[in-house]
Design a protein around this nucleic acid. Sequence first.
DNA 1: TAGGATGATGGAACCGGTTACATGAAACCG
DNA 2: CGGTTTCATGTAACCGGTTCCATCATCCTA
Lengths: 343, 343
Amino acid sequence: MQAKNVTIRDVARRAGVSVATASRALNGHQLVNALTRERVLAATKELAFSPSPAARRLSLGRTLSIGVVVSFLTRPQAAERLRGVDAILTDSEFDLVIHNVETVQKRDQLLTLARSRRADGLLVMSLPPSGEAVDALQGSPIPVVFIDVHSPAIRTMPRVVGDDVAGAALAARHLLDLGHRSIAFIGDAAENPFGFTSSRDRQHGLVDELAGAGVSIPPEWVGLGAHGRYEARDLARQMLGGAHRPTAIFAASDTQALGVIAAAHMCGLRVPEDLSVIGYDDIEAADYVGLSTVRQHLFESGRAGAEVLLGEIERRSEPAAVVRLGPELVVRATTAPPKEGRG
Amino acid sequence: MQAKNVTIRDVARRAGVSVATASRALNGHQLVNALTRERVLAATKELAFSPSPAARRLSLGRTLSIGVVVSFLTRPQAAERLRGVDAILTDSEFDLVIHNVETVQKRDQLLTLARSRRADGLLVMSLPPSGEAVDALQGSPIPVVFIDVHSPAIRTMPRVVGDDVAGAALAARHLLDLGHRSIAFIGDAAENPFGFTSSRDRQHGLVDELAGAGVSIPPEWVGLGAHGRYEARDLARQMLGGAHRPTAIFAASDTQALGVIAAAHMCGLRVPEDLSVIGYDDIEAADYVGLSTVRQHLFESGRAGAEVLLGEIERRSEPAAVVRLGPELVVRATTAPPKEGRG
DNA sequence: TAGGATGATGGAACCGGTTACATGAAACCG
DNA sequence: CGGTTTCATGTAACCGGTTCCATCATCCTA
């Protein structure tokens, strides 16, 4: 048999005060006599009272929780960002409620979250909202902050973004400095159901930086396909099969870069002697494999997003806060100067 | 200016019924006239009403959310399990509130979660509770289900576990079948702040299976240290440095197996020609690297845990449900027969 | 010493749902 | 046709906090 839940009225009775005073004492209100506060706290301890969150939420008119909409929770980037969010929220009064999105239908369903009163704020990770969703979010009663969403549709809303163009430029500069001139790109198909744009931005960053050095990429050295290791491997295999081969490949993600490395092995090419490979993201496996890459500050992006959101909940800011996190080149063992006589 | 929140009373007025009827209609109660229900639903749509979760929770006396205590969210195993949990909860009425634990203090703080009324059920992942915590959880007013916790202290509580002993035996059998007789083990130090036991269980599984075949492991071929890739690498380097070397190494986790492979390379040994390596977990990187390993059904363990928990919330079962998930051998490219003349 | 400022406290409304109980109408029965 | 079911609905209490407003005791000041 469960003892009946102890409520603030029990505490008040025990302490010999009214519920109003008990509530004030518990919430550290100013106008409470120090002695009275003591008595209330003592009663609280004796009765092992802990206030009902549901009741607090209702009477405060706040949910005391923030919703995180995360696409593909299992991608290492997502987990790391989430950890950053947790680091901030754990010291706040807010609960962290997560909504994993792996299908397009679910995305739209979830973005209506903002309309309902299920959270005091929403954090959307790596998920470009659909057209209608943008409208819904614009007029949302609760603040919404995006992390790693690059859609122009949200340009008026607060967000935390890495600079994919600059990051790709970093990779391009690295390859150029090593002496490469025959450089290929492997990335995501322009059309994808979620509207992810980071691959495209990285491609632009690469192309622009190369163009600045007078290097251009022939169309046959641009391989676009579904995001995935094996898809990237197959694309790379085509490029590497013929006689006219690039000396370096920039992949739009580490996952794809790992596919490129597999393709190189299948074609009998050594990395980095015969082919340099550089990726993007710095996922855990990149370290294992010794993959050169561009690092995003994932944990930090989660932290920053959560901080911006808490700020917005406190007081909506105008104009929308935008935090830009700089990318960082990580040189490991898959990039080297091209062999002589080529490039 | 935000319009005042629309409540069920507004809906009731609009539909020309009482709030009780409106509530019943919205919750699919039996005793409501079909026509009346129509009117209520129409009013709901017209006013864009969505019920306040806080109010529902309070009046239902349920939090409609379940708490997940997860240790080391960023480990790929954790994220994959969480995805399984989400798959179940997303179709339920429960919110998924996560609590990441990466420090010992935080663990104890969080296990008191069960005492407060912040969730209708608790899922604890890969985190052996401390002694006091066990007591707290035993008498918890809400059900608690463990996933991947092997502490004997929780033997009376519902849980989902993989069989680490059987999994390790699988790996051992594989190495024996290939012809290996000189087999080493690399795992976690017996003493660790969280009390994780899986490494120890895997060691037992290995030792027992080998013993059955008349093979024993000399003490110098058992390397225990802090969990991590680099720590494992250093331990392996010591073993592989001398003339008396094992022909195969079983690592208690893929992370550590990857360290072993790095050590082999540093010692000029080829894998699998000179040294077979097998890990445990089948993390994402294992596939990249072609690591032979033992797979746990991570997603499934999350699913199962959530299902058991929902069942317990519905109706506490006696005795506690225990779900055992069988491990599975995954043979890739890091295991092969030992070279002739050795082993 | 009257009058106002200040501090501490209590009573009761309120947040927005759910539901026990009461009520009334219609259907059914012998 | 009176009485009992059955169905549909309304009234109001309730969940457990927070907080507005009123009250009252002190203390300060002119």
